[in-house]
């Protein structure tokens, strides 16, 4: 890093910072296209889902529910709950862009994903200043590669029986692991133990809650619970 820290990050810096996550987006997007075709969706419907819903986990669940003949109301409700975690993410990243216009803020929210959120929060934790152009570069790169990868997956999907056997679905988990480590690495020294303890609590909370709740609800509740513990136990 040779540039001075007060330099405004450009759109292309955002594109560049998205590149390390692209393998993840492309493999998951591709896998989604293949799964979509296997779930009897058309290429156009797969394209529409990636264009309009743009949320990895929810799109896979959509396929599963659709192929099982689930009523539309249940599909919509499930999608809502699965994606509700974005509310927490948006709330925690939004203050960074308070000075930017309402329209641009709506744009950031529209293209917010787990991964772009992870990248942005990691940069913030490293003490970097984020600009609106940088955020747009990051978001647009992720969005366009997601759409492209899922359409390609849909087109070649007929010849690929099982994307799971390639391990592509694990790209998502691996990305979360890396983002978590990068975030921890930038935590101030005195706080690392506190954070590690919170991660332990997260493990316990998830294990317990997943006994009687679906995973996506367990994610929401344990995040809120442990963040609260974090505030109450900080020094």
């Amino acid at each position: 890093m040779t540039e001075p820290i007060h330099n405004e990050k450009t759109f292309f810096d955002g594109v560049k910072d998205c590149l390390p996550t692209l393998f993840g987006y492309i493999s998951i997007g591709f896998a989604f296209g293949v799964v979509g075709i296997a779930s009897h969706l058309s290429t156009f419907e797969i394209f529409l889902l990636s264009l309009l819903v743009y949320a990895g986990a929810a799109q896979f669940i959509f396929c599963g529910l659709f192929v099982a003949g689930t009523p539309a109301s249940a599909i919509i409700l499930t999608t809502f709950i699965v994606n509700l975690r974005h509310f927490l993410m948006a709330l925690s990243v939004a203050p960074t862009f308070k000075k930017d216009s309402m329209l641009r803020n709506v744009g950031f929210g529209t293209l917010l994903t787990d991964e772009t959120y992870g990248v942005a929060m990691t940069k913030l934790a490293q003490g970097q200043r984020l600009s609106a152009n940088w955020m747009d570069g990051l978001n647009m790169t992720a969005y366009l590669s997601w759409i492209a990868a899922s359409v390609i997956g849909a087109v070649v999907g007929k010849w690929i029986p099982n994307p799971e056997s390639w391990g592509l679905d694990f790209a998502l988990t691996a990305m979360f692991v890396a983002l978590l480590i990068l975030n921890l690495q930038s935590t101030p020294k005195g706080k690392v133990t506190h954070y590690l303890l919170l991660i332990l609590y997260m493990g316990i909370a998830m294990f317990v809650l997943m006994n009687f709740l679906p995973g996506h609800l367990a994610v929401l509740i344990s995040t809120l619970l442990v963040a609260l513990i974090g505030v109450l136990t900080e020094k």
């Binding site: 975690r85 927490l88 993410m89 709330l91 925690s92 203050p95 787990d114 959120y117 992870g118 929060m121 934790a125 694990f170 998502l172 988990t173 979360f176 692991v177 983002l179 978590l180 975030n183 921890l184 954070y195 919170l198 991660i199 997260m202 493990g203 998830m206 294990f207 997943m210 006994n211 679906p214 995973g215 996506h216 367990a218 994610v219 344990s222 995040t223 442990v226 963040a227 609260l228 974090g230 505030v231 900080e234």
Partner: peptide, 22 residues
């Protein structure tokens, strides 16, 4: 202050979600 803990919590939640099965 609560929001400051969200990134670490949510990222680890997503990792744990894939390590456990309901």
């Amino acid at each position: 202050r609560l929001l400051a803990y969200i990134p670490i919590c949510i990222l680890s939640a997503l990792v744990f979600e894939s390590l456990f099965t309901e």
